[in-house]
């Protein structure tokens, strides 16, 4: 399963956690002002809880966390690297 398959779930999580409707999966959440420190903490925590693994600390690249689409790809890649396999959407 690719990041693309996870995108709808990430959009849903953002809506649940941040109370924000993402206009499109390509919307830049940082440019749109939807992510600040608190929002990021909430989102990371919820993603880790939802998909049951820890996002990487060392190579956490914020530029890969700008859109729902990128987040989904990042989650898929991180989960694969973590050895837990691709999370289910």
């Amino acid at each position: 399963m690719s990041g693309g398959d996870l995108t709808p779930r990430i959009v849903e999580l953002i809506a649940d956690v941040l109370q924000v409707e993402v206009p499109t999966p390509e919307t830049d959440l940082i440019d749109a002002g939807l992510i600040d420190s608190l929002a990021l903490v909430s989102l990371i925590g919820e993603i880790e809880h939802e998909f049951a693994f820890l996002l990487p600390l060392d190579d956490f690249d914020l530029d890969r966390f700008r859109t729902a689409e990128q987040i989904a790809a990042f989650v898929a890649a991180s989960a694969a690297a973590d050895g837990v396999g691709t999370p289910a959407a």
Binding site: D36, L40, F60
Partner: peptide, 12 residues
């Protein structure tokens, strides 16, 4: 700040 730099530093 709105890029979550503070949160990432604290998390690390």
């Amino acid at each position: 700040r709105r890029r979550g730099v503070g949160a990432l530093l604290l998390r690390r």
